[in-house]
Design a protein around this nucleic acid. Structure first.
Length: 499
RNA sequence: GUCCCCAUCGUCCAGAGGCCCAGGACGUGGCCCUUUCAAGGCCAAAACGCGGGUUCGAAUCCCGCUGGGGACGCCA
């Protein structure tokens, strides 16, 4: 079995295409097949090397490695259509010689007029066949005079073209609704429908798995396979991924490219796992599965027929799950850039990373994306009593019975210790409890507010030692300056006393 | 307009004639846990688009309608 993913390098890798790539990958890896990556860059105006590099990078980030492709080579290369142009000409000539194709001199302007006329008259827009039966002498003469024709495929009339779609079953079209497609452009470059057929045949692709938007191209391609004497591959057309409003997923709906999801702090395994679940189910009521297991269970026959809506919420849930599973060191490596971007981290050193690793568990599990982690840990790096008190949830704590007493007593209780660890913090809390008679929520809520400036957040047992550890580290300039718990308690008490 | 594809909770899926007064997951609501906010645990509400057939029996098969999507390029 040989499958392929054939993106055109005209932009970022869209999640919908990533899903197509994934399904190809799953099939190949579940059945010991070969996954080929081919770059469809015959549209030289829009294709760029930058997007090609970006797409390769995104696929690799996702872990969808290919067995053959433009950068890794293979026995069926080259893997860029722009490097295969020499291959197409002979097949085009063969088709012309066999009467399956012909030269067409119609100008783009005329074609456009024809199309508009058809639409206006309520007819299906379809090539009029103007040049279908041009006498050979005329063709020769016009070419000799410098006209540059395209080569069109002669679609046979009144035949039923049908194929077995592995996900949809029998699909058939009448050849009468198919206009003669352009095979070779006037400048000699092949057009899509021609290049895919030649390449898939030459690369010995056995299963073409692609988006449903290609289903109406399939009959033309089947006809081409027949005219060229090739055996058509198996086809499978995947339903499309839509936005919440049932329109094609686009920037209006938020992130659409794999690169954006990476930037926003999604883990590749989460995105992959989520994408696999649109239009397919691994069965057994299980959803959170590693890609190898997905591949083991994957079958085209089980792929759904209807379009799926991209659900950011579920992706977020899934990402949260995978963040919890990831080892802290890996997570720190992935998250460090968000801390740098935020300015919390000033230098990417081993000490800073160690600190990150120790502090990350407090945030993971309560956020959906890596990008949200610094904000969840904001209390470590930012402390401003006046600003905190301006917030309703923080100010509200002052109204809790005994809260002001606790806040006032805190600086004294903290004076004894230079750097708080879990034990000394508990001792300090116990001391405040003794002085004020407050306990439980009435004790810890005010303490939290005084030390973190926030009404919510991770367990104080972890948060408090982390603050002082961070303060120590920040003295070395690796982190943004962090106030110690003692400093915070004093400043907060002063700010509260003023009110 | 023409052709093609599709149709189960708000969303993603399970369901391949009786196991279904439809099951799971996300989300939503409630409760619990709790040193707060999250997280987590438990419970609940929530769907077979409509109309005809076929059959003893239909979410499952057939037809029509409606609705959604795709295609109709010297784009892929």
């Amino acid at each position: 079995m040989r499958v392929r993913f054939a993106p055109s390098p005209t932009g970022h890798l869209h999640v919908g295409n990533a899903r197509t790539a994934l399904f190809n990958w799953l099939l190949a890896h579940g059945k010991d097949g070969t996954f080929v990556l081919r770059i469809e860059d015959t549209d030289t105006e829009r294709s760029t090397r930058e997007s090609e590099a970006g797409i390769l990078e995104d696929l690799r980030w996702l872990g969808l490695e290919w067995d053959e492709g433009p950068d890794v080579g293979g026995l069926h290369g080259p893997y860029r259509q722009s490097e295969r142009v020499h291959l197409y000409a002979s097949y085009a000539n063969e088709l012309i010689a066999g009467g399956h194709a012909y030269y067409c001199f119609c100008s783009p302007g005329k074609l456009e007029d024809d199309r508009k006329g058809d639409l206006a008259a309520g007819r299906p827009p379809k090539y009029h066949g103007t040049c279908r039966d041009l006498p050979a002498e005329e063709t020769r003469a016009r070419m000799a005079s410098g006209e540059r024709p395209v080569i069109r495929f002669r679609v046979p009339e009144q035949v039923e073209v049908s194929f077995q779609d592995l996900v949809r079953g029998d699909v058939s079209f009448s050849s009468d609704v198919i206009g003669d497609p352009v095979l070779v452009r006037s400048d000699g470059r092949p057009a899509y429908n021609f290049a895919v057929v030649i390449d898939d045949a030459l690369m010995e692709i056995t299963h073409v798995i692609r988006g449903e938007d290609h289903i109406s191209n399939t009959p033309r391609q089947v006809l081409l396979y027949q005219a060229l004497g090739f055996t058509p591959p198996e086809f499978a057309h995947l339903s499309l991924v839509m936005g919440p409003d049932h329109t094609p997923l686009s920037k209006r709906h938020g992130a659409t490219s794999v690169a954006e999801f990476r930037e926003r702090g999604y883990l590749p395994e989460a995105l992959l796992n989520y994408l696999a679940l649109i239009g397919w189910s691994p069965g057994g009521g299980e959803e959170l599965l590693p890609i190898q297991e997905l591949a083991r269970r994957f079958a085209l026959e089980d792929v759904g027929h209807s379009a799926g809506i991209f659900d950011q919420e579920k992706l977020g849930w899934m990402n949260r799950h995978y963040m919890k599973e990831a080892p802290p060191a890996r997570l720190a490596g992935e998250a460090v850039r968000y801390f740098l971007k935020r300015g919390y981290l000033r230098r990417h050193t081993d000490e800073a990373m160690q600190f990150l690793i120790s502090v990350l568990p407090m945030a993971v599990g309560s956020v959906d994306r890596l990008e949200e982690i610094p904000d969840r840990l904001r209390f470590l790096f930012e402390f401003d009593p006046a600003r905190s008190l301006a917030r309703e949830d923080v100010a509200g704590v002052l109204h809790e019975p005994g809260a002001r007493e606790v806040i006032a007593a805190l600086p004294g209780a903290l004076a004894a210790t230079a750097r708080l660890d879990r034990e000394s913090f508990r001792a300090a809390a116990a001391s405040v409890r003794q002085q004020t008679g407050q306990k439980g929520r009435a004790l810890f809520h005010p303490i939290r507010v005084a030390l973190t400036g926030e009404a919510g957040g991770p367990e104080l047992d972890q948060a408090v030692p982390a603050i002082d550890r961070g303060a120590e580290l920040s003295a070395g300039g690796e982190l943004v300056p962090i106030a110690t718990c003692r400093e915070r308690a004093a400043a907060f008490a002063a700010a509260v006393a003023d009110r």
